[in-house]
Design a protein around this nucleic acid. Structure first.
Lengths: 341, 341
DNA sequence: CACGCACATGACAACGCTGTCAGGGGGCAC
DNA sequence: GTGCCCCCTGACAGCGTTGTCATGTGCGTG
């Protein structure tokens, strides 16, 4: 009761295993009659080529690896979805692995895929800043970073700095001068870049940068509800919020609505489902995971053809989606005497 | 510039390849000193065992296949996430493939994984009702169905019929007698079971089953907004909605809120992010993807140990999450004379 | 001291497939 | 008729690993 191998097919159709191999791989020089007989035998036996033997022989497997933080994150789920769709067309399988943001786990997952599975390529969201252990495989396995840049590899990212400034500029144009930066997480270069955009924008508008307006993630966690309370409870509270990532956006939206402050000016970095159902709808910088995923796998396929190119960053465009929450003007400031300034 | 193989390690440490193999696989009878020398060489060379050769030799790979409708669906994304987490602990890789609900694609994906990659097991959300082509592999590769049952395999599902009735019974207890069934999709056994529960409940409460209250998905699509308009525009409109799946729930919630009817009684089958942020919060039957994913992989691991057991259905519990929308009473019916009945 | 046994190690084949090379047969040109 | 080439086919090795079996060494026992 063994699975039929190329040998069984050869016997069944009365040719040598090599000819079967030729038919399976669609090589030209096989007589049509022979091809027909072999195909019939394959059909009859339900033969499926053994991937392991193939990749052992060829030294590289017909799969690509995808290494991300977590599949429970909708952004990454959609990203992988886009990659998988394109990979299917190319006849490539997809191996997913997650890091949980642990650099050591990132290392073992990457090595397992590249050196162990000998995948045809890897798309990954970098955790560690440097990945020296990938050096030996540089010439053999194409690697593309997504979402976050990796200095030694091609990266597909959005213009974090610029998009953040675009969003904040809009808030500023609606009169906001105290804008909270929700969820500054030092671990991510992306977020650091967004924060950088936030800081620089203050200069541009001559606004004072108040550290108290920044919600920090420490040790990987931030209590969204408590932080929202703290910010709104300040003597001089922010009049608008900027959420630096999707998770923070959902946390912020939830806590604002819970306490009946859903009408607070608010722009999120990253779209999320139902953002348009809330009242008001949540305006956001739309960072399309499908666009990013597609760009990444296109880039990977290209690298497979031509591995000699220098690493560079590929910027995927973002757009500012206006849904209402980002167009709420700042309250008119009132002096102690109650007179408008 | 080849990747080091077991041979290079053997040479480097001055032992035979077999001994290296023993060390790598943690076999007992290796002298501590030898083990140390080999481990040092492995470290020095950065040796990683070749998965292809391993699975070629052993006839089965160290990975499990997961075949689902789509990764862009948050339910399946979380499901895969749970599976991947558990697989990592077991040292198994995860190969994801999607069907897009196409039975032919399901077939090729399953065969590719089982026969081609020779995965150690498969977890899949069945599309076709029968999968005769898996018969030859029955004894070799354990297979577990999730979300939807598959007659020939172990299945991990929720009690669709019972959970639906529980939800509808609550709506009925709040006085609703005309309840719309939103998104009846014949393609899914799960949805059929939920619809069955819906129909039977009408009998139990002596309610008339009105076909006009059922929104049908035809050819895989349903215009949620238009359907909501149609239902609410009826002469005798439904006073409550039941959404039979998450996608429908989001579509329904969105269209209800868009037209200012967010206060309509509504229970969804399947939770979704932000369901608790809407006003009122969307009550739902919570079908925990992590619970289901965990149950599925546990079952798969168990089947690997003991493949002889008879296929059966494993029911994962659901809970009814009260958030407001399911506790809205039916409007009090008024006679022509304006007198309460 | 001889024997047996446990322990540590190695030689070799085989897993299923493809790349290399060789060979048989038929047609065409000289 | 002879030589050549092209088309089609097959024999065989080897990819990196592990299972089987064999070998060598040292120690305890009678």
């Amino acid at each position: 009761m063994r699975r039929p191998g190329i040998k069984e097919v050869a016997e069944e159709s009365g040719v040598s295993i090599k000819t079967v191999s030729r038919v399976v791989n669609g090589e030209a020089s096989v007589h049509p009659d022979t091809r027909g007989r072999v195909l019939a035998a394959i059909e009859r036996l339900g033969y499926v080529p053994n991937t392991a033997a193939r990749s052992l022989k060829s030294g590289t497997a017909g799969g690509i690896g995808v290494v991300i933080d977590s599949l429970a994150d909708p952004f990454f789920a959609s990203l992988v979805s886009a990659i998988e769709a394109r990979a299917l067309v190319e006849g490539l399988s997809v191996l997913v692995a997650t890091t949980g943001l642990d650099p050591e786990r990132e290392r073992s997952q990457l090595l397992n895929l590249i050196a162990g599975h000998q995948v045809a390529g890897v798309i990954f969201a970098p955790v560690a800043d440097e990945l020296p252990y990938l050096e030996p495989y540089r010439a053999l396995t194409p690697v593309v970073a997504v979402d976050r840049p990796s200095p030694a590899h091609d990266s597909v990212v959005v213009d974090d700095y610029g998009a953040t400034q675009l969003a904040l500029r809009q808030l500023a144009s609606f009169g906001h001068r105290r804008i909270a930066f929700y969820d500054q997480d030092e671990r991510f270069l992306t977020v650091r870049r967004r924060f950088h955009g936030y800081c620089d924008l203050h200069e541009e508008f001559g606004m004072k940068l108040d550290p108290a307006l920044v919600a920090w993630t420490v040790d990987g966690s931030l209590d969204y509800a408590a932080e929202t309370q703290r910010l709104l409870g300040m003597d001089d509270p922010p009049t608008a919020f900027f959420a630096s990532n999707t998770k923070a956006a959902i946390g912020l939206a939830t806590s604002l609505h819970r306490i009946g402050r859903g009408d607070t000016a608010f722009i999120a970095f990253g779209d999320f489902s139902l953002a348009d159902v809330l009242r008001p709808g949540v305006s956001c910088v739309d960072q399309d995971p499908f666009l990013i995923g597609n760009a990444a796998i296109e880039r990977l396929l290209e690298l497979r053809e031509n591995p000699t190119t220098e690493p560079r960053e590929w910027i995927v465009p973002t757009s500012l989606v206006q849904r209402g929450s980002g167009e709420i003007p700042a309250p008119i400031p009132i002096t102690m005497e109650g007179i408008l300034l």
